[in-house]
C-alpha cells in the first residue's frame, strides 16, 4: 500500500488476509466476503463505506473477533483471531477492543457513569481507578455534567456519547463503530464523528468505522469502498480535506 509522502505509515494493527465468508440459509449459500484483504493502521479513523448488503458489517464483525471466517485469516495486534477459542476471544476483546453500535444499547437502570464503569470492573481495576477512568472518559466526550443521568433523561446524541465513553474508558487499542451516526441528527452526528476522530489522533487508537453517512466519509482519514463483498477502492483524505486517490490493494 502506498501512503502519502509526508508521513511514513506505522505498522498495521489489524490485517485481514484473503478472508472469505458465506452464510447458509436453508439450501441457499450466499457469499458475503470473497478473498478480501485489508490492513488498518493505528492513529487514524478508517471508514468502510458501501451500500447496504455489501458485507461491510460482516467485515467489521470478523475484524473485531465477533465472527469467524471460512477461509483466510485475521491478525489483530499480532494475534491470529482464528486460533483463539471463545474464552480467549472474550479476553482479547476485554483488553483490546471497544465497540460503538448503531443502537446505543445502554442499560436503562444505570446512570451514564455506571454504564461506563460496568465493563471496567471486569478488567480487574480498583474501585478508584474505575471511577477515575469513567469520569475521565465522560469528560472527554463532554458529558461530565450529565454523568448522573439515566438513558431516559439523555438525548440520542448524548446516549451515543455515553456508549463511546464506555468503549473509550477501556483504553482499547482497537475501536469499532457500526453506523454510529445513523440514528442521530446532523449536529449530534457531527459531534460523534469529531470525538471518534479525536480518539484516533490523541490516543493512537485504531478506529474502524462502518457507515454510509456522507458526513463520516468526509471526516475519515481513510475510506474503503465496498461492494458485493469486495473492496473497490481505498482512498485517503489528506489533512487539508483534499482527497488523494490511491490504487486499491
Amino acid at each position: 500500500m502506498n501512503a502519502p509522502m509526508h508521513h511514513s505509515p506505522p505498522p498495521p494493527t489489524l490485517r485481514a488476509e484473503s478472508i472469505g465468508k458465506a452464510f447458509v440459509s436453508g439450501k441457499l449459500r450466499s457469499r458475503i466476503l470473497d478473498d478480501l484483504s485489508i490492513a488498518v493502521e493505528p492513529g487514524e479513523l478508517t471508514l468502510i463505506a458501501g451500500p447496504s448488503g455489501c458485507g461491510k458489517s460482516t467485515l467489521l464483525a470478523i475484524l473485531s473477533g465477533l465472527l469467524g471466517v471460512d477461509s483466510g485469516r485475521v491478525l489483530a495486534l499480532g494475534h491470529d483471531l482464528g486460533q483463539l477459542d471463545a474464552r480467549a476471544l472474550e479476553r482479547f476483546r476485554l483488553h483490546h477492543t471497544g465497540f460503538v453500535f448503531q443502537g446505543f444499547n445502554l442499560f436503562p437502570a444505570l446512570t451514564a457513569r455506571e454504564q461506563v464503569e460496568l465493563p471496567l470492573h471486569y478488567l480487574g481495576l480498583s474501585k478508584t481507578q474505575v471511577r477515575e477512568r469513567a469520569v475521565q472518559s465522560l469528560e472527554e466526550v463532554g458529558l461530565a455534567p450529565r454523568m448522573h443521568l439515566r438513558p431516559a433523561e439523555l438525548s440520542g446524541g448524548e446516549k451515543q456519547r455515553v456508549a463511546i465513553a464506555r468503549a473509550l474508558a477501556k483504553q482499547p487499542d482497537l475501536l469499532f463503530a457500526d453506523e454510529p451516526t445513523s440514528a442521530l441528527d446532523a449536529a449530534n452526528g457531527q459531534t460523534v464523528i469529531d470525538i471518534l476522530h479525536r480518539i484516533a489522533r490523541s490516543h493512537g487508537t485504531t478506529v474502524l468505522c462502518v457507515s454510509h453517512d456522507p458526513r463520516v466519509i468526509h471526516h475519515a482519514d481513510r475510506v474503503l469502498r465496498m461492494e458485493d463483498g469486495r473492496i473497490l477502492d481505498d482512498q485517503r483524505n489528506t489533512p487539508a480535506g483534499a482527497t488523494a486517490e490511491e490504487p486499491s490493494p
Binding site: A86, R87, F101, N105, P119
Partner: peptide, 18 residues
C-alpha cells in the same frame, strides 16, 4: 428485554460466564 445490552457487554469482553 436486555439482550442487546448483554450482547454489547459481551462484545466489550465481559464473559458469558459473568
Amino acid at each position: 428485554g436486555s439482550l442487546r445490552e448483554y450482547a454489547t457487554l459481551n462484545a466489550l469482553g465481559v464473559s458469558v460466564a459473568d
